[in-house]
Design a protein around this nucleic acid. Structure first.
Lengths: 248, 248
DNA sequence: GCAAAAGTGTTGGCTCTACACCCATGG
DNA sequence: CCATGGGTGTAGAGCCAACACTTTTGC
């Protein structure tokens, strides 16, 4: 993790007002899906999803990508827009107001400059899939820390952010098989067992080893590579790599 | 169709800026999906999707519902948020600028008051399913007319609105079977043939009559009602009605 | 009774699942 | 040569599509 410069809330100019982006960054480790969650350096140490705003000169996808790059250090990242959260009640919590007030106290600045942050926001939800081993989590200027949390043990987050994660998981379950995107959660080369365990984790159920292998290989999107000799007293498994179905 | 009062573009106050909603209203008639599309009363008679903005005191779902009510006269309407359109290029067309200029010319008002409409907009796409027979299309103040257009013969629309319809259709195809929502496009009571023809229209392929009937009835969501005597020299079909799977 | 369309039953093929079997690996 | 885990083959169940057969209706 890196330390950012002195904290400063973003300024109003240059952003679309009352529109935000929240990202659910999924990683996979130890047979658990993990979510990358920063903890704020304000009282209570509240957790929030990594998020941001949309600049006037970038598309919403670019905005999401920039947020994701900034938090993971990864350039090419798989992301999917899955839902917009626009209820009235979602922003009425006291937490943004507290943040703005505390910010003013700390820096002796005019709280009015960032008062726009306390307004109601409509937020576009994106989820991202990353190879957890390649991520170097980067905390932002307003974060105390940023860590991977297993889905089963997420901290309580501000506003509706826990609900956003739940919806992201639904979307992931809906997409994983149809869009063949699971590979984004694994290293470039992986064994069939690793892939199967990933599927079992996402869908929270067992897949018969032999049948899973056949089903996946029949898709024709995996290239078989060399064997992986683990030193264990058993047959060495093959490594596989994902190859795109023709079309560049 | 009704005539609104004298045309006036909406004013900035009270809305979230640079955020809009576009609705793809699907109806079904003559074995074709139709979309309700207004034509603007400005030069060229451009067509656009029914749309609107989000008031500060309403959720995005409420905003979409209000737009839909206003255009169809229907209170209870099935709608689904399916995608956000936020590319930079989408709003760069000249058409909104023309509308604002023409409005100023017509009413001798200060174009600056509605200049906010010429800015970049991020738009939330909703699709709605309605019983076409129950809809009384209502044109807005800036419309010349509003009509149902078969999907195969949509007019060219402004900005990316044709693309929005295409994405709405994809979403509908993805949802129709999974969510059992096709009934929203039909009258309350319908024959199995009508339902099958609807499916054939949406998916643009044939379904074997007998197998379709079995598959649908096995879902256990249809109530069989009285027979429908058409006067034709053949067996009278049953009418069916959709019943919600338990839970109120 | 005949044509037309609705409703029901039956057969065959395809797919998925469970499970058995063989193979490689290192001790 | 044995224990362990990976890869492949096979039989059975379940699902789905095609199609045949029966029933109903009005002339």
């Amino acid at each position: 993790m890196q330390d950012g410069p002195r904290f400063r809330l973003p300024e109003k100019e240059g952003f679309i007002e009352q529109l935000s982006i929240d990202c659910v960054i999924f990683g996979y480790r130890d047979r658990s899906l993990h979510v990358l969650v920063p903890k704020l350096n304000f009282r209570g140490g509240l957790s929030t999803l990594p998020g941001g705003f949309v600049r006037q000169d970038e598309s919403i996808d670019e905005a999401a990508l920039n947020i994701l790059k900034g938090r993971t250090g990864i350039e090419k990242i798989y992301l999917e827009q899955f839902q917009v959260f626009g209820d009235l009640e979602r922003s009425t919590g006291p937490f943004m107001r507290d943040i703005v007030r505390e910010n003013a106290e700390r820096h002796g600045e005019n709280a009015g400059e960032v008062a726009w942050l306390t307004r109601r926001f409509v937020s576009i939800g994106y989820y991202a899939l990353v190879n957890i081993a390649k991520v170097v989590p980067v905390k932002s200027e307003i974060d105390d820390s940023i860590d991977w949390h297993p889905l089963e043990a997420l901290p309580a987050m501000v506003m509706d952010h826990n609900k956003i994660v739940a919806e992201a998981l639904k979307a992931l379950r809906n997409d994983l098989d149809r869009k063949l995107i699971g590979f984004n959660l694994l290293p470039e080369r992986f064994t069939m067992q690793e892939l199967r365990e990933l599927y079992e984790t996402v869908y929270d159920r067992a897949f018969t080893r032999s049948n899973f292998q056949r089903r996946i290989l029949d898709l024709g999107v995996l290239e078989r590579l060399e064997k992986k000799f683990t030193g264990a007293a058993n047959k060495a498994p093959y490594l596989y790599r994902f190859i795109l179905p023709d079309q560049g």
